[in-house]
Design a protein around this nucleic acid. Structure first.
Lengths: 143, 143
DNA sequence: TTGGTTTGTATCAGCGCTTGTTACAGAAGT
DNA sequence: ACTTCTGTAACAAGCGCTGATACAAACCAA
């Protein structure tokens, strides 16, 4: 499948916006840095806008800028704005309910999924866009 | 995309095998419980065999059984046998290397990915197939 | 008001992955 | 030999993501 890279692109774009402070940035410019089509960026910005992370303006001299300070934007917010976190999917077809395992396995797997989800979200909640920018600027730091 | 449910099916199948002890189980039987095609099951069993989790036998009276005790099979092993754990993908196209952010963002995101990966694997490592079976049998337990 | 710029959004083709299916060779028991 | 069952190849269908074109609406400037 074409893997979902929306989160990566979102972080990239938001980092660009953060570096530009209050200046409005055009989707064309962002697209060149991300190396994709401007419409892909605009679609993404739309999701970020719905999550109240950015503000856009149409028209001449339009563009997008952050709606908050970088330290107020956690990566969890970004993730929830553009991605879904399921590490694995449950059965595509309902298991046979006449079978003891089939009748109960989805409940168990669902619980596991929830637990893993919480772990992922916990990790993401620890970082803000500010941390990302600092990591980008510091070649010695991992995240 | 068609979401990857191999891990779910794998756990389901392994739980069935565990409940049947040393008896050899046919892919047809497993397929009925999972509610899919026997070939899908055989393909999956092939991966599980490569990870040394099951043993199969061809021919009349053939079938598959676990190669170890349920308490010796961690969900992490199962996961690594059939799935890939990336919660998000990096950029499909290489970012613009002439841009400061573009040049450094993938390193940062890669680090984050690694960290999240470790968290997921840590969660999965905590549970064994035995735990799954106990949860399936006990309606009051989450995982 | 007119014209140019930029976003928002619809629409579509292409790609890759997963699933489900048929088919058949090879292995194993009777 | 004959039957049973796995292993595996091959293929169609479905779905999600990406990338691209197109255009209406919003906005600024002259």
């Amino acid at each position: 499948m074409a893997a979902n890279s929306q989160f990566s692109i979102a972080v990239h774009v938001l980092a660009m916006l953060a570096k530009s402070c209050d200046e409005r940035i055009k989707s064309d410019y962002l697209a060149k840095s991300v190396n994709t089509n401007p419409v892909v960026i605009r679609r993404l910005l739309c999701s970020l806008h719905e999550a109240n992370l950015v503000v856009s303006q149409t028209g001449a001299c339009g563009g997008t800028c952050l709606s908050k300070q970088p330290e107020e934007i956690s990566l969890l917010e970004v993730f929830n704005a553009v991605a879904k976190s399921e590490v694995f999917s449950l059965h595509p077809n309902t298991p046979n309910q006449d079978c003891f395992i089939g009748r109960n396995i989805q409940r168990v797997l669902g619980g596991l999924q929830t637990e893993i989800d919480a772990a992922i979200q916990g990790k993401l909640a620890r970082y803000t866009l500010r941390d990302v920018i600092e990591s980008v600027e510091d070649k010695t730091v991992a995240v």
